[in-house]
Nucleic acid binder design. Sequence first.
DNA 1: CTTGATTCCGAAAGCGCTTTCGGAATAGCG
DNA 2: CGCTATTCCGAAAGCGCTTTCGGAATCAAG
Lengths: 342, 342
Amino acid sequence: MREVSLKSLSRQLGLTEGTVSRALNGYADISAKTRERVRDAADRLGYEPNSAARRLALGNAECIAYVMPWQSTHIADPFLGELLDGISAVLSERRWDLSVAAPRSQEEEVATIERIAKAGRANGIVISRTLGHDPRVETMRAMKIPFITHGRTTNSDDHAWLDVDNFEAARFATAHLIGLGHTRIAHIHGPLRYNFAAERLKGYRHALTEAGLATDPALEAASETTLETGYTAMRTLLDIADRPTAVVCVADMVAIGAMKAIREAGLVPGREISVIGYDGIPMGEHTHPALTTMAQPLRSAGSQLAWMLMAVIAGDDPASQQQIIPADLVRRQTDSPPIRNA
Amino acid sequence: MREVSLKSLSRQLGLTEGTVSRALNGYADISAKTRERVRDAADRLGYEPNSAARRLALGNAECIAYVMPWQSTHIADPFLGELLDGISAVLSERRWDLSVAAPRSQEEEVATIERIAKAGRANGIVISRTLGHDPRVETMRAMKIPFITHGRTTNSDDHAWLDVDNFEAARFATAHLIGLGHTRIAHIHGPLRYNFAAERLKGYRHALTEAGLATDPALEAASETTLETGYTAMRTLLDIADRPTAVVCVADMVAIGAMKAIREAGLVPGREISVIGYDGIPMGEHTHPALTTMAQPLRSAGSQLAWMLMAVIAGDDPASQQQIIPADLVRRQTDSPPIRNA
DNA sequence: CTTGATTCCGAAAGCGCTTTCGGAATAGCG
DNA sequence: CGCTATTCCGAAAGCGCTTTCGGAATCAAG
């Protein structure tokens, strides 16, 4: 199997490389007849332009890069596949590539981004799990490379992003519990350097205040977005004197961990203590009892991100590519009015 | 921020591009002094060679591609992150790229591989979830592009692969249950086109035969590798006349689904019916009761695959890059002797 | 001091493709 | 039929880097 190049193709057709190239790329100065002839031959021989050569000549990487967050907790992210799938779907339409980098520290994250930008490896970058103040965003800004973030930062007026309305989601979930009659509502929040975690905490507090309830530091417990840390966070919440009758969790996995702690305390989630998760992972339908949660449409996030980034690359104002998606309450079995004697 | 190129760098140093290039690449015909001088300047200015140009000149993509399996069930794979992380880890040492493609059908899978090979986009390809007879393997063979598969095929003597000893793992799990005294042991298997599923089924049957027990088609139920299908498979197993007292499942998610069905039938997993999963996902520690499973070290699979593929790319005989990893029984709470009156 | 071996760098070609430019062949017009 | 406007393709430059080759300068040896 000899590599079929532009040279061999053109020689076989009795044309110049330039002509064949223009025919393939649909230039108007090639007659319809020869264009057909060239395309047929290309298909037949399975010609595919060498990507490095094309990229060099075009000065275009035809590639976007996804830089994974380095935190190890993120590695088990079940959404990664969907995200990549979504991005890849829109890229493949234009035959662009998706390159994935997995930095191993925060410094490497920044270094990776710099290298991608300087080497012209990609036309744009997408990152997720933004921090309130995110050094990655700073370097991408400095590098002047198009980018989009999955999640806002505290200062993201001028760049492209796709985010869930975290504040509103947490506020809504909390208000829902208040509506059910709860007054002692706890919150297990994520690491507050993550903007989504900080926003959800704010939303939670806002709902309390809004309803005339006092916020209580004892009712706020920290966790990572893992089952284990959700479990331990819930245990501390169970130990306090005036035990909460409900808890809103920063993530479904955290909620599942919390449910485990609740069961171990001899209580049942959704009766003595209501639990609301966040994410809408499939597993939530199958927990015992089934988890009530704030679900967000993740399936489309990847393609959405890709579309928006492509627009920025095409020259659109990044500030015009900002989109907020709502999260919906999915009521299952872990939310109910508080029990009188609890 | 003007892109710093070889030209601008060399001009600034009063040297030729060729000289600078050789200095940077450690050629011996450059004096130590100028080499230092060049490297300093390069670091200072943040020079990074343009990747397209480098690749073209080198005739080397410095990149390997991971082609995701197209099955949607796989998209929620929690291991994807670890896999990519592992691959990326070894690639980044050599400053290679990892490119990810997500085909949307079986035809596209093959087409994607062909395009990668023809366009010289990557030096090698890794795929996972191999089928017994896998068209992807055929095309990679035909394209003569180095590749490695995560999982064997029925005919994989001549290519590189990394695989778990599926047969032995299933045999061992089944034998373990037999050792506990079970005689009615069911198996929920995965889609048999997947080689791992077929192998595990074989191992299960072998263990029975080995112990002088008869295999019973009624005790073999099919599922995907999802919680839902595991649930429904278990329900059919619960309905048969002479109910099994134990079940070995093709995957942990399947086992979790099976446990749900068992609980719904008013039985408790690990008492009336023993359950053994496969994979060793973190969630298994937190199910209720905790899931006994055959665990495999997945964390290192990615880097292992990458190392081996690199060796093949470097010219090693693919047949020399084959590795089998064992799965270990992790006993938790769902395996126990059968109950007398069950 | 001459010759030959080294050391070190400049010059130039080339990787495979795209694109601009100019000119030969054809068509359109009076 | 001659002239200008079009149509279509060939020629050539260039994308930014690597690498081979040759030659000037330096060195050691005679």
